[in-house]
Amino acid sequence: EKVLKRMREIKNELLQAQNPSELYLSSKTELQGLIGQLDEVSLEKNPCIREARRRAVIEVQTLITYIDL
């Protein structure tokens, strides 16, 4: 939940920025750090946690791809 919240904050900052190119590098670095945090999530045998992590990774990767474009 914390990762998704921060990812959404970054997305809003990028969309509202007057000059978003200044934010791209720092935002991309922070998003890659969020992916690292998601990699540390213990998936164990809980399919709900596994699915939530998968969705979060996809959302963060989508935003990274947007920045790259």
Results as ranks from 00 to 15, higher is better:
V3D: 06
V3S: 03
R8G: 09
R8T: 09
R8K: 10
R8C: 13
R8S: 14
E9D: 03
E9C: 01
E9S: 02
E9K: 03
E9F: 01
E9I: 03
I10T: 00
I10R: 00
I10F: 00
K11F: 00
K11W: 06
K11M: 07
K11D: 00
K11N: 05
N12E: 15
N12G: 06
N12Q: 11
N12K: 12
N12R: 12
N12A: 13
N12W: 04
N12I: 05
N12Y: 06
N12C: 12
E13V: 09
E13F: 00
E13L: 08
E13D: 10
E13S: 06
E13T: 06
L15I: 07
L15D: 15
L15H: 04
L15V: 06
Q16H: 15
Q16I: 12
Q16G: 13
Q16A: 13
Q16R: 11
Q16T: 14
A17V: 14
N19T: 06
N19Y: 04
N19E: 11
N19K: 08
N19D: 14
N19H: 02
P20G: 06
P20V: 05
P20E: 07
P20D: 10
P20F: 03
P20K: 05
S21N: 11
S21E: 14
S21V: 13
S21M: 09
S21H: 13
S21D: 11
S21Q: 10
E22P: 05
E22I: 00
E22Q: 12
E22G: 09
E22S: 10
E22C: 13
L23I: 03
L23F: 04
L23C: 13
L23Y: 07
L23D: 08
L23P: 00
L23K: 06
Y24H: 08
Y24C: 03
Y24W: 10
Y24R: 01
Y24P: 00
L25S: 08
L25A: 10
L25R: 09
S26M: 06
S26D: 13
S26E: 10
S26A: 13
S27L: 12
S27K: 15
S27V: 10
S27H: 07
S27R: 13
S27M: 13
S27A: 15
S27P: 00
K28C: 02
K28E: 00
K28T: 01
T29D: 14
T29A: 12
T29N: 06
T29K: 15
T29H: 10
T29M: 09
T29I: 15
T29P: 00
E30C: 06
E30K: 08
E30Y: 00
L31A: 02
L31W: 00
L31C: 05
L31R: 00
L31H: 04
Q32T: 05
Q32M: 09
Q32F: 07
Q32A: 09
Q32I: 07
Q32H: 06
G33F: 12
G33M: 10
G33C: 10
G33K: 10
G33N: 04
L34A: 00
L34W: 01
L34F: 00
L34T: 08
L34E: 04
L34Q: 00
L34R: 00
I35S: 02
I35D: 03
I35N: 00
I35T: 01
I35A: 06
G36L: 11
G36E: 15
Q37Y: 09
Q37D: 07
Q37W: 04
Q37R: 09
Q37G: 07
L38M: 06
L38D: 03
L38I: 07
D39F: 04
E40P: 12
E40I: 11
E40M: 10
E40K: 11
E40D: 13
E40L: 10
E40C: 09
E40T: 06
V41N: 15
S42L: 09
S42I: 10
S42C: 09
S42M: 10
S42H: 02
L43K: 14
L43F: 13
E44R: 04
E44D: 14
E44W: 02
K45G: 13
K45Y: 06
N46C: 08
N46L: 06
N46W: 03
N46K: 07
N46R: 03
N46H: 05
P47K: 10
P47T: 07
P47V: 07
P47A: 09
P47W: 06
P47N: 10
C48G: 13
C48M: 10
C48I: 12
C48D: 14
C48A: 15
I49T: 10
I49L: 13
I49W: 05
R50L: 14
R50S: 14
R50N: 11
E51L: 05
E51P: 02
E51H: 11
E51M: 07
E51G: 08
A52S: 09
A52G: 05
A52R: 09
R53Y: 15
R53G: 12
R54P: 02
R54M: 12
R54A: 11
R54C: 08
R55H: 06
R55L: 10
R55Q: 14
R55Y: 04
A56R: 02
A56N: 02
A56P: 01
A56H: 00
V57N: 03
V57S: 13
V57E: 13
V57R: 14
V57W: 05
I58M: 14
I58H: 15
I58F: 08
I58A: 14
I58P: 04
I58C: 14
I58V: 13
I58S: 15
I58Q: 15
E59P: 00
E59H: 02
E59C: 03
E59G: 01
E59V: 00
V60K: 00
V60W: 04
V60G: 12
Q61K: 09
Q61M: 08
T62M: 10
T62H: 13
T62Y: 04
T62R: 14
T62Q: 15
L63E: 04
L63H: 01
L63R: 00
I64Q: 08
I64L: 08
I64E: 07
I64H: 07
I64A: 03
T65E: 14
T65R: 14
T65G: 09
T65F: 15
T65K: 13
Y66R: 07
Y66E: 15
Y66F: 09
Y66H: 14
Y66K: 12
I67K: 01
I67R: 01
D68W: 00
L69F: 15
L69Q: 07
L69A: 15
L69C: 04
L69Y: 05
L69T: 13
L69K: 15
L69V: 11
L69I: 09
